[in-house]
């Protein structure tokens, strides 16, 4: 340990020399590792965003119950009571025409002026019913039997579709994580083995001088660590630019889509990418030095 601390400057210098000896291959490796990690970061971001959307939609699970026109206040009150009595139903409240209009105005934001095209308020009053999403099928079938209900709008189909998309992204994500892991390990261990081959005379000399194996291996491990870390950094920069641009575009085009906060999403994905790249770099290098075999030892 003392020897590693004393020689850290030497190890870093050696790692730099190893990098320079095979400069073109190392630069190409960094670029390919960067692209591999960029794909990983994209998939993980997509996974994160979709999970967030589904969670948000599920958390705010509610159905809109439209009742027949011309109901008296007493009939409406009775309808509210009937709905409340269904098991799994939470808050129940009436949203009148005016509130419906204001809500849509909020959602449309800058585009709200299109509502001015209507001479009269085009929205109908409805009853907003919060439900337990897990019991939505049972609740819906019970509500259909309640008197004076004309139409129920639920977002179950949307949720089901979103869940399907998340499952696909999860599956693809796992495949990408495995693929990234294997390809990074292969690229790094190959580069390290190449470095060991190129430096076989130096390694042999160190062995004849009695250098311990970790002392010989350490610069190669550092080289692999920096290769993947720089690759991870490139992926992080690309992701940062793309997510910032993408968020801007999504917020303009579909402002009502609930997205996780860009800052925290980028921070967590960048941290994940850098930590993963560093770990894979070290493991890849260890595989590379382990594969040099006993030929150089002793």
């Amino acid at each position: 340990m003392k020897s590693i601390v004393y020689n850290m400057g030497y190890f870093l210098k050696e790692a730099k020399t190893l990098f320079k000896i095979d400069l073109t291959s190392n630069i190409l490796s960094i670029l390919s590792i960067g692209l591999i990690f960029f794909i990983l970061a994209l998939v993980i971001s997509g996974w994160d965003i979709m999970s967030f959307i589904v969670e948000t939609v599920e958390r705010e699970a509610e159905i809109n119950v439209y009742y027949k026109e011309g109901l008296s206040d007493t009939e409406i009150s009775k309808l509210l009571e009937d709905i409340r009595s269904v098991e799994g139903v939470g808050d129940v409240k009436i949203v009148d025409e005016e509130e419906s209009y204001l809500r849509m105005k909020d959602i449309l934001g800058d585009e709200a002026h299109i509502l001015e095209l209507f001479e009269e308020n085009p929205f109908s009053p409805f009853i907003e019913v919060q439900i337990n999403i897990a019991e939505s099928d049972v609740i819906l079938s019970k509500l259909k039997q309640v008197e004076n209900i004309e139409y129920i709008r639920d977002n179950k189909r949307v949720l089901d579709r979103l869940n399907d998309i998340v499952s696909v992204i999860e599956f693809v994500g796992i495949l990408v994580v495995v693929a990234v892991g294997i390809s990074t390990l292969m690229v790094v261990s190959h580069i390290i083995r190449q470095g060991i081959y190129n430096n076989r005379d130096q390694i042999n000399t160190l062995k004849l001088l009695g250098a311990p194996q970790p002392f010989i291996d350490f610069p190669f491990i550092l080289e692999g660590f920096f290769l993947t870390l720089i690759g991870g950094l490139i992926a992080s920069i690309l992701l940062f630019v793309l997510l910032n641009y993408g968020y801007g575009q999504v917020e303009l085009a579909i402002p009502f889509i609930p997205l996780p906060a860009a800052d925290s999403l980028i921070r967590s994905i960048v941290t994940f990418t850098l930590v993963t790249s560093a770990i894979l770099g070290i493991i890849g290098s260890l595989l590379g030095v382990a594969k040099q075999g006993e030929g150089f030892r002793g």
Binding site: Y6, Y10, L208, L209, G210, P212, F215
Partner: peptide
Amino acid sequence: LRQNIGPVFQEFKLIRGRTALENVMLGMRF
């Protein structure tokens, strides 16, 4: 055992691309 030996090889076995001082220090680093 080798750490207690000071070898002078027939073909020197110096590390190219390093200075004389770095080569001498290399034998002592560990």
